[in-house]
Design a protein around this nucleic acid. Structure first.
Length: 594
RNA sequence: GGGCGUGUAGCUCAGUUGGAUAGAGCAUUCGGCUACGAACCGAAAGGUCGGGGGUUCGAAUCCUCCCACGCCCGCCA
């Protein structure tokens, strides 16, 4: 049995083969899925109906023939044809017990990277270093990070790529403002009188404010604006002075990001940064390649690629601008260079972009051009994994009353504060240090889960209360379930990591829990394929609900006999491992008590 | 004007290549702590799946037309 293969996959493979054996065309899927209702067993196969229709055969007969040919006796204790041709399957207790036996190896342990697997590149977070990270960066950062973990767990070599913006036009403005402050500290805007002559380093401690002040200068002073534009040119031409100041700014801004990543428990560090500027030297080569491929066209002074499949207003051809009239490059050029690098140097077989859905058209164009230019060979999958825009509670694109954004730091502070108040109320007997630590894990977890648990493609409304909710389908519920299992082990005085015992499923609640646990691999496979971690959230929630029901109905420590007690402890142990692993893949922490 | 996306319970959202009686959480109502931790559990109530038409054994899901909202459509990223 292959590690990580799900029960569903195995049933699917056997029934699909059986359908073919029963006369269906090669490649006919069995369409196995969890049963839609309890009375229908554990899994159902719906493929016979569609196949029979195409073959003009009686669907129930085909289903019956397939079921016989599949010979599922080793897995299934009861099977029947229902309705127009559903195949309803009930897994045998022996099968469930055997699966639970191998749980640690098949489900919990990461799948080894097999074959000569080419790496999957995950492009996520990618903040613009000109500004401070704000709540709008949560989705890309958190979802991308969870996906990187899930892909690794399911046996892929993953290369995280943080394509930070460090080379855009705004840097001219920022560097000019920096130079001005360095030479004349009196120009520091007097937001507060005592900040009048602060050092540059101190000023840069709040990048968001720094950016706003620079922008104000830019908008108000034409001479300043011109100097800013000149600075961009000098920077991109490699002027040593500009580069030094740029480096200083980038370092400070990167440190801000790293602080946020660290608080969020996001697995990004400097080794994953491959900034826009890193492609600077490649850009002329990208242009040359496009030229050589005969794709470049000059239009209104700019060099563009026009592809037939993209039309703009009035059916006019839609350009992808590669090089501006003034010779400057744009983000399309950098994105093409990145694809060229990731395919050519990194040898990627799949590249995932966790980027705002407003860039959908941009990526469709860039991908198409990358194919046409040969930067991305046909076997490489380029996938934009778009996510929704953050809206305010009025349904308009999000802003604070001051027209700004909410800094991630402030959101996380608020989350921890609320969690601390809650844990202090629920468990005042814990000492403050422990309550602080619990508040940190619970608060951050709640924020992350709020983002992870929704389908990434829908817009979402920024609201403190829903983001910091601790009730219902939230991270704290899952963390609570985990801490309850741990409590069981503390009382039983056994180490869950070392404990094991034969499992025998008697009560209905035990069987339900077992099935939920064993479905984890099929969920992980879907998440890895489609980039949808919300399915993992909802599955972990199902596991937690099943555990809570089991916990209510099935006494563990005071079970009637030792065998039952140990069997239930073993089931609890699987639950603990599943929650630990699942939350870990989501990047959400756990606590032993809360 | 064209393209992309969204529209499901009062609110926030699930719904996996079309499957059987559309599911959760919150809120509401009712019940459960001398109990392996009540951040919990059980139950009830709540739906013309934006609207019309079509495809078929079967549609929230596929096709078509319409409505509402959001985003994108040449030198920002």
């Amino acid at each position: 049995m292959r590690k990580g293969s799900s029960l569903k996959d195995r049933l699917e493979a056997r029934l699909a083969a059986a359908l073919v054996a029963a006369g269906a065309p090669e490649g006919t899927p069995a369409i196995v899925q969890p049963a839609t209702r309890a009375g229908f067993g554990d899994y159902q196969a719906n493929g016979a109906m569609g196949a029979a229709k195409r073959m003009q055969r009686n669907p129930r007969e085909l289903a019956q023939a397939a079921l016989a040919a599949a010979a599922l006796d080793d897995m299934v204790s009861h099977a029947e044809i229902a309705g127009p041709g559903f195949i309803n399957l009930t897994l045998s207790d022996a099968c469930l017990a055997a699966e639970l036996e191998a749980f640690a190896a098949n489900v919990i342990a990461p799948q080894p990277v097999t074959e000569a697997a080419a790496p999957v590149v995950v492009d996520y977070s990618s903040p613009n270093l000109a500004k401070e990270m704000h709540v709008g960066h949560l989705r890309s950062t958190i979802i991308g990070d969870a996906m990187a973990r899930v892909l690794e767990h399911t046996g892929h070599a993953v290369l995280r790529q943080n394509h930070v913006g460090d080379w855009g036009t705004q840097f001219g403005m920022l560097l000019t403002f920096m130079a001005e402050l360095a030479s004349d500290p009196d120009k520091v805007p007097d937001k507060q009188p005592d900040e009048h002559k602060v050092a540059l380093e101190h000023e840069l401690a709040d990048i968001e404010t720094f950016y706003r002040n620079a922008k104000e200068r830019f908008d108000a002073d034409a001479a300043f604006a011109q100097r800013a534009r000149d600075t961009v040119v000098r920077l991109q031409a490699g002027d040593a002075d500009c580069l030094a100041r740029w480096q200083q700014f980038i370092d400070i801004s990167m440190r801000h990001c790293e602080a946020v990543y660290s608080r969020l428990g996001v697995g990004l560090d400097r080794s994953h940064v491959h900034a826009e500027s890193a492609y600077n030297d490649d850009l002329p080569a990208v242009v040359d390649d496009l030229e050589a491929a005969g794709l470049l066209v000059e239009s209104e002074g700019a060099r563009c690629v026009f592809l037939d499949e993209f039309k703009g207003k009035d059916d006019q051809p839609l350009p992808l601008i590669i090089q501006k009239r003034d010779g400057g490059y744009l983000y399309a050029t950098t994105d093409l260079a990145a694809i060229r690098y990731r395919c050519g140097q990194l040898g990627a077989e799949r590249i995932l972009y966790f980027v705002d859905n407003r860039q959908t058209l941009h990526f469709r164009q860039v991908f198409a051009v990358a194919r046409a230019a040969g930067f991305a060979p046909a076997h490489v999958e380029l996938e934009h994994m778009p996510f929704g825009t953050m809206l305010g509670e009025d349904g308009r694109p999000f802003r604070t009353r001051a027209g700004g954004v909410i800094r991630l730091t402030d959101l996380l502070d608020e989350a921890e504060e609320r969690a601390f108040a809650l844990v202090s109320e629920k468990n005042p007997e814990l000492d403050e240090t422990e309550r602080r630590e619990i508040a940190r894990v619970v608060g951050i977890g709640a924020v992350k889960y709020a983002d992870l648990s929704k389908h990434r493609n829908s817009d979402y409304v920024f609201a403190w209360d829903s983001m910091l909710s601790f009730d219902g389908n939230t991270a704290p519920y899952l963390q609570y379930a985990y801490s309850r299992v741990q409590s069981l082990f503390r009382r039983a005085e056994v180490d869950p990591a070392a404990f094991d015992a034969p499992i025998s499923l008697q009560a209905e609640a035990e069987r339900t829990l077992a099935l939920q646990l064993l479905r984890l691999p099929e969920t992980l496979a879907t998440v890895a394929r489609d980039g949808v971690p919300h399915l993992l959230c909802s599955h972990l929630f199902d596991i937690a609900v099943a555990f809570m029901a089991f916990y209510e109905q099935c006494p563990v420590l005071s079970a009637a006999d030792t065998a039952t007690r140990e069997s239930r402890l073993a089931l609890a142990q699987r639950t603990s491992a599943a929650l630990h692993t699942g939350l870990g893949l989501l990047g959400i922490g756990i606590v032993e008590r809360m």
